[in-house]
Simulated scan of single mutants.
Amino acid sequence: MQTRLVSYEALSAVQQQQLSDIEVHPEQLPFSGDMHCALNTLLANPSPGVKGFALLADEIPVAFLLLKRPPCLPHWADEHSATLHALQVDRRQQGRGFGKACLLALPAVAIETWPQIKALELSVDSDNAAAMGLYLRAGWVDSGEAYKGRIGYERRLRRAFDS
């Protein structure tokens, strides 16, 4: 199976429709949100500081994520980074390595989109063991800091680029 991470703008009309069918498990909704919210963030008030990307598996969308840069960076992020948000793998496709495929393809796509960035950052609920494990196995580093988030305590992780 061939996978590739592509910008939302590069999707065909059919792929954009398929993307809207992505669903996460109900227990994941508090952490990632749903596709409606993610697409609303991307499309309702377009900004050069927000970009959407879909992971295609044999040309069918199976996952989606958002990247943000100024002026849309969260308060905790370094201005030289892009931040990862709303990573969602379709519940019918989970367990097949698509989350890992997104994270492995992400640095190259992020640098292509914003060549000036030095790293990727994210914030993850400290109780979200599956997500924490996925990020750490993909080379993200826990900053060691925790702060009170929407749901519980959040950890900040960073994936620096090789200079």
Score class of each variant (00 low, 15 high):
98 F>K: 05
8 Y>H: 14
21 D>Y: 08
52 G>C: 06
11 L>G: 09
162 D>I: 10
78 D>C: 08
61 P>V: 11
99 G>K: 07
96 R>P: 07
83 T>Q: 03
101 A>D: 03
134 L>N: 10
77 A>R: 02
94 Q>A: 00
161 F>R: 00
64 F>S: 04
77 A>Q: 05
107 P>D: 07
138 A>S: 15
117 I>M: 09
59 E>Y: 02
67 L>Y: 12
67 L>M: 10
65 L>R: 05
125 D>M: 05
23 E>Y: 11
16 Q>L: 07
40 N>F: 13
116 Q>K: 08
159 R>M: 14
89 V>I: 13
49 G>C: 12
3 T>C: 11
41 T>L: 13
71 P>C: 04
153 Y>T: 13
146 A>W: 05
119 A>K: 15
114 W>D: 00
129 A>D: 12
64 F>Y: 15
115 P>K: 00
32 S>G: 08
42 L>P: 10
15 Q>K: 09
72 C>W: 01
88 Q>S: 03
64 F>I: 05
48 P>A: 01
135 Y>N: 09
88 Q>T: 00
23 E>N: 15
135 Y>W: 10
75 H>D: 15
39 L>A: 06
111 I>Q: 14
150 R>S: 14
124 V>A: 14
72 C>E: 14
26 P>D: 15
74 P>M: 12
137 R>Y: 02
65 L>G: 05
135 Y>M: 14
27 E>C: 10
141 V>K: 13
122 L>F: 06
90 D>F: 01
51 K>L: 08
